[in-house]
């Protein structure tokens, strides 16, 4: 059968974006009252809610290193997040993998030595799924951590890049991501230094094209950084207004 045309010769993708365009991003910090920090993050139709608890006293003291904080990540997918409802078990390897990636990424960015013998819990809930889960999770978690006031060396901004018909493309949606031929690369960077915090890809990409795709994804990360920064500023303004009264 006919394969879907992911990038038309006119340069438009299935949803009408050009190759180097991000989806529409909207985000907000402090959306939950009970959590220490929280954020809601939308990237196109992918919607993520993150709650951060901590730093607080560790539950299982035996597991906690004495000189730094333990970062704990739990990732959940809402049964209604995809068009076909499906309940996933907590031990789903896919879910564990995502939480492991998020955990690894943030362990290096959070200044864990500031909070010895304590624990930071990051709960991520995927509300709606349309590709780019990992990038949305990392971006949302950054915002929630900032909101929780946990000290970090920098923001972490993530973005995906792919390669369709000899053209690098930015921020894949679900249709593009699920095409077998499209490599799907997730990059997370620390925007101030440009250091790479995470680089993940499971498919094949010709090695000479890696740099092009990386460059594009990094430029995407930078735009996302601006968005996150705005959201942090908005939250801060909001907070200062509240305190001022």
């Amino acid at each position: 059968m006919s394969r879907q045309e992911l990038l038309s010769p006119e340069g438009l993708r299935v949803d009408g974006r050009r190759a180097n365009e991000l989806r529409k991003i909207s985000c907000r910090a402090s959306v939950l009252d009970t959590a220490d920090g929280s954020a809601y993050f939308e990237q196109g139709n992918t919607k993520v809610l993150v709650a951060v608890y901590g730093p607080r006293e560790a539950r299982q003291k035996g597991l906690v290193p004495h000189d730094k904080a333990l970062v704990n990540v739990e990732f959940n997918v809402a049964p209604f997040s995809t068009s076909e409802r499906r309940k996933r078990s907590k031990s789903d390897k896919r879910l564990l993998e995502v939480s492991a990636f998020v955990k690894q990424t943030f362990e290096s960015v959070i200044q864990t030595h500031v909070y010895p013998r304590s624990q930071i819990n990051i709960y991520i809930q995927l509300l709606q799924h349309d590709g780019g889960t990992l990038e949305a999770c990392i971006n949302a978690a950054t915002l929630a951590l900032v909101d929780a006031g946990i000290s970090m060396t920098d923001y972490v901004c993530a973005c995906t890049g792919g390669f369709i018909d000899e053209t690098p493309v930015l921020d894949l949606n679900f249709v593009e991501e699920s095409s077998i031929e499209t490599p799907d690369l997730t990059v997370a960077i620390l925007p101030r230094t440009g250091k790479v915090a995470l680089l993940q890809m499971e498919s094949r990409l010709r090695s000479d094209k890696l740099e092009d795709v990386m460059d594009l994804a990094v430029s995407g990360c930078k735009s996302i950084h601006k968005k996150l920064d705005q959201a942090v500023m908005a939250a801060a303004t909001d907070l200062s207004e509240k305190l001022g009264h």
């Binding site: 299935v14 949803d15 009408g16 974006r17 989806r23 529409k24 196109g44 139709n45 068009s83 076909e84 349309d130 949606n173 249709v175």
Partner: peptide, 27 residues
């Protein structure tokens, strides 16, 4: 400008589901 396109389709298993896709309008 963003419009969402939604339609109902039949999956391979035969279930009927609602699919929502983004549809960006450009100028």
């Amino acid at each position: 400008m963003l419009r969402s396109k939604s339609f109902v389709k039949r999956t391979r298993k035969g279930n009927i589901v609602r699919t929502v896709k983004e549809h960006y309008l450009r100028d």
